[in-house]
Design a protein around this nucleic acid. Structure first.
Lengths: 203, 203, 203, 203
DNA sequence: TATGAATGAGTCTTCATTCAT
DNA sequence: CATGAATGAAGACTCATTCAT
């Protein structure tokens, strides 16, 4: 039995990530990836079905993390009116993303700014849509629990807020903020955002 | 009797805009533009140096409008403390963009979502940077005039706000809101944003 | 205005025909066609959308001729009982094909034996099916006119006869018979076939 | 406990047959065969020299059967004048093929329609040639025994008849006729063919 | 016997741009 | 001003086969 040549697959992924990051999905070429990975071009296809599959594999951990966040969003513990009066909700909600950003800084850049041409090129939209849907459900559930709050907010507004989030994440990763800076920014954002929501929900 | 081709250049631009809009800068092909414009492919190069120049020309009116807005941003009439207490500032500021959006809906979509591969592919960033700079200058000037206000806000926060603006514009144009819907959204946004700024500037 | 470089398109088609004929559709390569036609590879795509289109163009005259024959098959003058008793029907019918074969010897070889991989790779089947359908209609119409003839022949038998035709054509072209030899063969075939049909139709 | 791979070679052949049958020789890929056979790609080359050898092995039983038929064709018992007056000759002759078809339906399809790219891609021609030669010898021997019969038939006509046979076999297998349908078709064919031969041989 | 890894030549096709007339 | 022709590099991907272990 042959000794596995260390970790060619990981080598390829590593090189590919760098290439994708430097030139974007479309402009990164299989030829280049092969050359830089010290691998025959066709040999790559023993490890991946196509270019897109490499891209997906590079971003797989991030995608899993994002799914996890989405699923936990409307959990019971978040369906609490105190959330609106304290800054805790935003803070907790935000911290989840802070962790995400610190862990996946590069991958987020890749996903948000360099995915053109891949099967994830519309991720921004799709994620915003999913996020909006969940946001709307959240408001519904809150209204059921606390009928007096004001939730007559246009879906588009929610959509914009979701989009804002993505933009903010994009901003953070594209400026390579360190954790401290992120925290500082978040506190500013909290002040701003909490005030806004309080006003608009009359909560 | 041959019909005189009065305005080939305009024809090309018209076709190019549609192609750029439908397929994005990179995936729009010169061949297609030539064919649809009823023009010889190489003839295009008598009117434009290259593909990018066509793109720039398509977006020129929009770019001029954006520059104009930028220049007027820090004019004397905007340097007034009343602005923070009323919603007027935001409203006026916003209306400028509403006009812009209504006028340049298609061009904005093109610029914000379909410019990959062109010399404007980083417009979002560049615009945000410029906008941030101007925003910072604005705060400085206000501080000089009204020393008691709180302007110790991180540049990054301003940057994020600028980015938010762009995102919002992107959201609006990509959802084809009509003027009425835009107005409705703006009023929601106003409530939210004004409250936020008031809080953060302690004004 | 530029002088048309003689007839590049025709050059390409000529070379392509030879290549297709020598190696078959699939194994003929665009590179080779380009090289032998003294044309830049990519330049071919200024004349043809793809490899298949060249193939189709090579075979276009043949295809038109085949369609014509098919359409004329069930014309009024052929719906006559005398046809079964004389050898004339077969003869006339056959002569049409003789002309076809003499004119399109090479193209027929190409179509019948070398089209694998092209959009015409199933031509044999498709043609046989069409021919069978028309043959069945022919029998129906004859039965209406001459109710006493025996037309209770299985569709499959007709199908086989159609297929036979194609095979015979294939045989002829792949053996490069000259017109004289074709005629001789046809007379043998006539004797054989007429006797067969007479018997089976009890006409 | 590991299951012993008893008959890898047979497994490979079984999978290969299916792949060849589904996609044809050329479009069946070694990769796929290996994967579906649960065998390492390169391991196949321990059992077969190359792709073509697998193909040959898949078709070996059929090829042996075909050879057997060919050899028996001109045996003494077939060299009998009664054969022309009865339908028995054709019937017997045909039944041999009926058995062949029923037994090797799939293999025949493969050989006749899917062998492009293999060393058997010209089987149709080669078989027809061999068959023609034997047919000619048969006529010679008959003429020696029964000098009065008419055997001045062009080789090409015999060739065509041989080709017809192959076509008919092709038709039958490609329409998946069951035994009953084959029999029915044969009786139609018998009527047709016997009449034809009678006429042409003046027997 | 078995296999993961590698090879290298090959496939068609696309593109913006330039050249010669 | 106009255009048909041409270019050359680049794109992703496939394949049967062989190598080293």
């Amino acid at each position: 039995m042959q000794v596995q040549k260390v970790n060619i697959k990981k080598d390829i992924i590593a090189v590919a990530r760098k290439e994708f990051f430097d030139r974007g999905f479309k402009d990164a070429s299989m030829r280049m990836i092969a050359k830089k990975a010290g691998v025959g071009l066709s040999n790559i296809y023993n490890y991946f079905r196509n270019k897109d599959e490499i891209f997906l594999e590079v971003l797989a951990p991030l995608m899993r993390a994002l799914d996890k966040i989405m699923i936990e969003h409307n959990s019971q513990e978040n369906l609490n009116i105190d959330i609106f009066n304290s800054e805790e909700y935003y803070f907790r909600h935000t911290n989840i993303y802070v962790d995400l950003i610190v862990t996946f800084n590069d991958e987020l850049k890749l996903l948000l700014f360099q995915s053109y041409g891949s099967s994830l090129e519309n991720f921004r939209d799709e994620y915003t849509d999913r996020h909006t849907k969940i946001g709307m459900e959240y408001l519904q559930k809150m209204k059921e629990k606390y009928p007096w709050i004001h939730v007559d907010i246009s879906e588009f507004f929610i959509h914009t807020m979701s989009s804002w989030w993505i933009s903010i994440i994009g901003e953070i990763v594209s400026h390579n903020l360190n954790t401290e800076e992120i925290k500082k920014f978040i506190s500013e954002y909290m002040e701003f955002g909490t005030a806004g929501w309080k006003k608009i929900m009359k909560a």
